[in-house]
Design a protein around this nucleic acid. Structure first.
Lengths: 166, 166
DNA sequence: GGACAATAGTTGAACTAACAATCATTTCTG
DNA sequence: CAGAAATGATTGTTAGTTCAACTATTGTCC
């Protein structure tokens, strides 16, 4: 145990620790950048007395859907959170009068999260805050072309991460 | 401000919602990709009866630091989590025998999270799982050169997001 | 048509993380 | 040198998330 520890210690001290694969480094940057930007957005929202970031994500996702409504399962998948978590998140937005639950007559298992006028209104107030912060964080580093390239790269990675069980 | 809301409401109803700026889209991809890859890593770790992803991140960060130890504040900043959260996270790793707390004689405010042999050993077991999953997710989409470009891009964004208060 | 599996969503318990307040130590300043 | 400000870390509280179990509805296959 001690000799093994000594050996690894030496390796790390020499900087030849095998963690630093290019993809590992890229993942580290991705993870930390997500946390940093997310933190910045949360701060900006809190400063304006707005609800937390997940509320915005729900509203934005539903607003883009046809008829301003989405099935719970689809919404959970779009936000990459669990269905149980989404149920309670939507509960809070419903309680705040931003969403309502509507139902499907032909398949009574499914329920929709449907945008209410108050939700649309709040979304229009939150959006400039989000967009403004993102411009600050992204504009200095990314042209429009580069932003689209970045998006395409990340979407490709996500596709592999999801269907990657194969 | 109400006319502004009305105008935007109409826009949303017509599906020409202005949220889709290039930077906004890039952020959406970044956020969802982070969640998807993170989820995949968590699943792989759970499947091998390994501790959750944050434990790996702590161990990996400390392992790369000189003398396999880091000040709590620096570690929190590196992982982009709060100091309070880190205190309790390190508590769990200490309780598991992976880290120990050590102290600085010259400044007795600071404490270090110091890697123990068991932590080094666990790290060497977890690393191939993480690296393997990342290879699957990234290799199909990214050459080594592209991975480094992605890393540089993301690091630039993070720098702006952190120092961006200006 | 009726049992069985599959799908959609919700609920309760355990865990995790963030926020604010606090303690201890050090540094600055008059 | 004493007191105030700043720094480093921890603690209690609160809120949010996940996981597993559960209900309800629909589809499938003898």
């Amino acid at each position: 145990m001690s000799d093994q520890a000594t050996a690894t210690t030496t390796a790390a001290q020499h900087g030849e620790c095998p963690a630093n694969t290019p993809h590992g480094e890229a993942w580290g940057s991705l993870s930390r950048t997500h946390a940093a930007v997310s933190q910045r957005l949360q701060e900006a929202l809190a400063q304006g007395d707005f609800p937390p970031l997940p509320w915005y994500e729900v509203l934005a996702a539903v607003a883009e859907a046809p008829e301003q409504r989405m099935r719970m399962g689809d919404l959970a998948e779009a936000l990459v959170i669990t269905r149980g978590g989404l149920t309670k998140l939507v509960d809070r937005l419903v309680k705040a009068g931003l969403l309502e639950r509507t139902f499907n007559e032909t398949d009574r298992r499914v329920s929709y999260a449907t945008l209410l006028p108050a939700g649309i209104h709040l979304l229009t107030e939150m959006r400039p805050v989000i967009v403004g912060e993102l411009e600050v964080a992204f504009s200095a580093n990314l042209s429009v072309i580069q932003a689209n390239e970045l998006r395409a790269t990340l979407d490709g990675i996500r596709a592999d991460a999801c269907s990657g069980v194969v």
